[in-house]
């Protein structure tokens, strides 16, 4: 049982939950996630640990209501309600080192998982250039938090209602074309965005990392449901990932496998799939 200490509406259909989960909080590192089950009949779903407070024993989850379980959580769970099961921290922590300059890209609510990683990269001495991409101004989350830990923060929106009009790949392209090679690019968001970031950096051979949101059940390497092709290997995203070398990920296979139970629109976290925060 994990008690919800504070629920906040961040954007349409996007909620922040601060929950009491001391066992997870004492151990978690940036890049890791939890699996939750809200009630007895509910599904197990993975959610990134968007922030944590070891002293208070709390973790923060940012949830976008895209389908049954996430809607149920966002619509019916409030302060002081208890989430039946929270297990974690799961997955491999992000690889943190001083790469020099890093570009941290978050699309839609993908910004939430980017935040703790960007913060750790900053603490490790990197120059952090952050890019937040969203469909429009109202869907931007974590702007202040990201600004506080970034050396430079770029915002792109599809309709130009905030920051630059365009896609997250535009500022990356500009940087690379001008010969500013970052040591690493991190991209978390809708699959199509991660894929396009990977294609943008590929010709320049800039190491690029994506965090994959596969379907999961147990999160411990037991079921193989989260498998995805990375290079010549089949990897289990829950234990080998969720972060992988974006230049090796078979994104088409990821998209295909996400469709196993439903139309794609409900599955892509970040923007519900309607988002055009990136070009094709």
């Amino acid at each position: 049982m994990a008690k919800i200490l504070k629920k906040t509406n961040l954007a349409p259909q996007v909620y922040e939950f601060i929950v009491d989960a001391p066992l997870v909080a004492h151990k978690c590192k940036p890049g890791q996630f939890v699996i939750i089950r809200t009630e007895e009949e509910s599904e197990r779903i993975p959610l990134t640990i968007a922030d944590f407070d070891r002293k208070q024993g709390t973790i923060t989850m940012i949830v976008q209501a895209v389908g049954n379980t996430t809607k149920h959580l966002c619509e019916t769970f409030n302060d002081n309600d208890e989430i039946l099961d929270v297990v974690g921290p799961l997955g491999m922590p992000s690889h943190i080192e001083n790469f020099g300059t890093v570009v941290c890209v978050g699309g839609g609510i993908g910004v939430a998982p980017v935040y703790p990683i960007a913060r750790a990269l900053k603490e490790a001495g990197n120059k952090v250039i952050s890019i937040i991409g969203a469909r429009n101004k109202d869907l931007i989350i974590f702007e202040d938090k990201m600004a506080a830990i970034s050396d430079e923060l770029i915002i792109t929106t599809d309709d130009g209602s905030a920051g630059q009009k365009g896609f997250v790949t535009d500022p990356i392209k500009k940087m690379l074309e001008s010969g500013n090679m970052p040591g690493m690019v991190l991209a978390i968001g809708p699959v199509i965005m991660m894929k396009n970031v990977a294609e943008t950096t590929r010709p320049y051979k800039v190491p690029t990392v994506a965090s994959l949101n596969t379907i999961m059940v147990d999160g411990t390497g037991m079921c193989g449901g989260c498998r995805v092709r990375v290079g010549d290997d089949n990897k289990f995203a829950c234990v080998d990932g969720p972060e992988f070398d974006a230049h090796l990920v078979d994104f088409a296979n990821l998209v295909q496998r996400q469709q196993m139970y439903k139309g794609q629109e409900s599955l892509e976290y970040g923007c519900g799939g309607h988002c055009k925060c990136v070009g094709d």
Binding site: L23, D85, V86, P89
Partner: peptide
């Protein structure tokens, strides 16, 4: 204690 993954939680 359910929901505890040894190797991760402890």
């Amino acid at each position: 204690m359910p929901n505890v993954v040894i190797g991760r939680t402890f």
